[in-house]
Structures are given as C-alpha cells and as structure tokens.
C-alpha cells in the first residue's frame, strides 16, 4: 500500500523587517521555496512566502502584511530562483520590492495597464504617491 504522508500545514505572521532572517532560517533547515504570492485586502498587501519539506511534505507559510507604499527587501540573494515570483508581484500588484537580483523593471509580462490586479482607485493613489516622492528626490538633487 502507499505510505501516505500526513503533512502539517501552518501559517506564521511576521514583520517585514524579520523577513530575510526567517527566510534564511527556513533555507538552513533544508526546506525548499514553493511559491510567493500577493493579495490585496482592506487597503493592505498580504504577501505569502511558502516553504515545503521534501521528506514529509510539511507546508509552512510566512505571512507579511504591508502598507501600500512600504518597502520590502528581496529574497533573491538567498534564493536566486525567486526572481520570477517577485517580478510578477511587482508588475501585477505594484509591491515595492527593492534590490531584486534580476529586475525586469515591470517588463516581465509587458502589459499595457499598470498594476492591473489592484482596484482602480488604489492604482491612482500609488502612482501619485510615487510621483511625489520622485519629484521630492529630484528637487533635492537640483538644490545641491
């Protein structure tokens, strides 16, 4: 008969600043990265980083709640194949991920609409916020 595995599925909520440490811990335990995805509810992003154990198929998810303009570092230095997941999150949801190893700069899927999976009113709010930040930085450089 087949030896059935009974995996344990768990979800752990962490802060954005603890993300890199926790991901490194999971990698040292021998887990493999399964998937990274983003969702949007009630004005916040919910990022899920899922890890899987190859022996007993345990499934562990790290959940991060982010504000819309908050920055989060990339895990692609620890896990190089996470670049596709992170570029997709950046392009479809506009998540502000910094320092991705291979950054496609919103040209992974090359869609005409920006951040199509966000509701339209949030899209405009993010674009205006990012424009004003860029103008403020540009203004300071000119003064120098």
């Amino acid at each position: 008969m087949v030896d059935i595995k009974n995996p344990v599925e768990s979800c752990e909520v962490i802060e954005a600043k603890d993300l890199l440490v926790k991901v490194l811990e999971k990698k040292k335990e021998g887990l493999r990265l399964s998937q990274i995805c983003a969702a949007y509810t009630d004005g916040k992003y919910e990022l899920s980083y899922s890890f899987e154990n190859e022996e007993n198929f345990d499934f562990v998810t790290l959940r991060v709640y982010l504000e819309l303009e908050e920055e989060i570092p990339s895990v692609s230095e620890i896990l190089p194949h996470a670049v596709f997941y992170e570029n997709e999150m950046k392009e479809l949801y506009g998540v502000n991920i910094k320092m991705i190893n291979l950054d496609f700069e919103n040209k992974l899927y090359r869609i005409k609409t920006k951040t199509p999976l966000l509701p339209p009113e949030e899209r405009k709010r993010i674009e205006d916020a990012r424009k004003s930040i860029a103008e403020a930085e540009g203004g300071i450089k000119e003064e120098d």
Binding site: V2, D3, I4, K5, N6, P7, E54, F57
Partner: peptide, 9 residues
C-alpha cells in the same frame, strides 16, 4: 528526488 503529491493520499 522522490517527491510526488499523490503521496498525500
């Protein structure tokens, strides 16, 4: 690698 989701039963 011996990994197949049909082991979940």
């Amino acid at each position: 690698l011996d990994m197949d989701m049909r082991y979940l039963g």
